[in-house]
Design a protein around this nucleic acid. Sequence first.
DNA 1: TTAAAATTAAGTATTTATACTTAATTTGTC
DNA 2: GACAAATTAAGTATAAATACTTAATTTTAA
Lengths: 220, 220
Amino acid sequence: MENPIRVLLADDHVFVRDGIKSLLENEKNIEVVAEAVDGLEALQFIADATPDLVILDIRMPNMTGIEVVEKLRSQNNNIKIVMLSMHDSEEYVLKSIKAGADGYLLKGSSKEEFLKAVNTVANGGKYFSGDISNILINQLTNTSTTAHQPKPVLAESLLITKREKEILTHLLSGKGNKEIAEALSISKRTAEVHRFNLMKKLEVKNLIELANKAKEHALI
Amino acid sequence: MENPIRVLLADDHVFVRDGIKSLLENEKNIEVVAEAVDGLEALQFIADATPDLVILDIRMPNMTGIEVVEKLRSQNNNIKIVMLSMHDSEEYVLKSIKAGADGYLLKGSSKEEFLKAVNTVANGGKYFSGDISNILINQLTNTSTTAHQPKPVLAESLLITKREKEILTHLLSGKGNKEIAEALSISKRTAEVHRFNLMKKLEVKNLIELANKAKEHALI
DNA sequence: TTAAAATTAAGTATTTATACTTAATTTGTC
DNA sequence: GACAAATTAAGTATAAATACTTAATTTTAA
């Protein structure tokens, strides 16, 4: 461990900073190189002190922790970021992940969890407190059906014509042949033919399969 | 704590079972009521001893832990399930979640994490070891386009009956009324009625909308 | 410019779905 | 055991989709 992990602490409460600092400084492979009292200051110090990792409180004056993450990532700054929060609110957690944070800890987390998070994230991993995992699960299970599909092969999609793609789009929005015909100003019979050819090309025999196949192959 | 959490342990290694057992039995609110050495035995003991919670190893002879979960959930058994594994392989984790497990622990987890998981899950929560959260994150970020949907409201889902749910499942697999009727050994007319009621309840007017709504509200 | 591909649309017959209503049985619950 | 809710299924009429084929135009690419 010749190179300790250089950490910046950003939290507007002295107590919290002191607590975390003493916790971290007992570890020989971690060094707290700066402390910031708000988001703006955090950004400055990150630019000046170039720490390896930031521990960012979410609720801070002059720019929230999430805004700091967004700013950093928009500057292509790949510094490691662990969010720190009193709250396991779904909004905070998901916003943090979306913004590009590498970890999320609750202020109630144990010392062990804290150190694990810092080490894991410093080594390129991700760490989200076990308490907040149910939020992730919720997000996952709500979209689980589309999550683990075989990699789309684009062979057949090349065979579908522009018009057929239009028909497909309308079909997937729930329209019937008549409505499609009206929308495209063509005869209902024409819409029927396009639909027929489309289903034949994609080798499906009903709307559900059509919808699935279209999604799989990203035809829309 | 008048009613302790009644736990079943399922793992094919004595050492592991003993270790977990001694860990759990130090807690006054937890009682280990049975131990199983493989998946089949676990299923039997769950039926006989009706524990509140099962700790299931994934790799076991005569039926894997994941198969046990699938079996239980297919029987509408809502027993709490915590998976236990040596591995944080993405496949295992996701399969477990999909099958309906409430928690996932690594064998390397600390005692504290173990107890937290058992208590959280027993109280209706979910607990996934912080170490595996990056897997969840990956899934989330890979499906980010669908990830941020408006929060599903479950109002309507409560109104759909068991039979209707069956019909829904078949509809979503692409079956027509006739096929559904055959599959469930009911009259085609009955299948039609269920379908009609279903669509009315969910306020949709075609299969596509039905499929979308079902996905949104996680009705299947 | 010319053949190939795409779009258009009609014909025909069969099957399936829609949109209800009515009503007889089960099943579950206080 | 009584009442509500769920499951079952029939009737009726209309609309839509399926499964093709044939064939006239129009567009596009070599």
